[in-house]
């Protein structure tokens, strides 16, 4: 058993469940990451769990990206991404972005830390 498969076998269950409200972290770390700027700090919900993948923030620098990180599709209303007055579309329009676990905060934590 190599380290990749054993780490997969020992994986914990995903932290978030489908439909759960989450906030995307609003950090701005130096280096490569896959969380688009426009989506940072956005309030949304888990659309689906995609599986665990090597961390692109490590892969980008020639490392193995292990342990793998849970990846979710997070959906948010366009009006919550751009602001009610700035989004020229319809209120029901949404965007779904792939976000890794370490970029997500459960809503209780993020709301209490922001007060």
């Amino acid at each position: 058993m190599d380290s990749a498969s054993s780490s997969t076998a020992e994986r914990k269950r995903p932290r978030f469940s489908i439909g759960e409200a989450v906030r995307v972290r609003s950090g701005a770390p130096i280096g490569h990451c896959r969380t688009p700027h426009y989506f940072r700090g956005v309030l949304g919900w888990i659309e689906r769990y995609c599986g665990a993948f090597p961390n692109p923030e490590e892969l980008a620098y020639g490392r193995d990206g292990l342990p793998e990180v849970d990846l979710y599709r997070v959906q948010a209303r366009m009006t919550d991404v751009w602001g009610n007055s700035l989004y020229v579309g319809r209120p029901q329009d949404t965007v779904v972005v792939e976000v890794f676990d370490h970029w997500l905060e459960s809503l209780e934590t993020s709301s209490s830390s922001q007060r």
Binding site: C50, P56, V88, T94, V95, E98
Partner: peptide, 26 residues
């Protein structure tokens, strides 16, 4: 919606436009 209209695709007001950002592994 503006982008879609440039392709000649008018999405009715009552329909949800759902954009998917292929930002990682999917």
């Amino acid at each position: 919606r503006k982008l879609l209209s440039q392709f000649g695709t008018i999405v009715p007001d009552e329909v949800e436009v759902r954009v998917h950002d292929s930002s990682a592994d999917m």
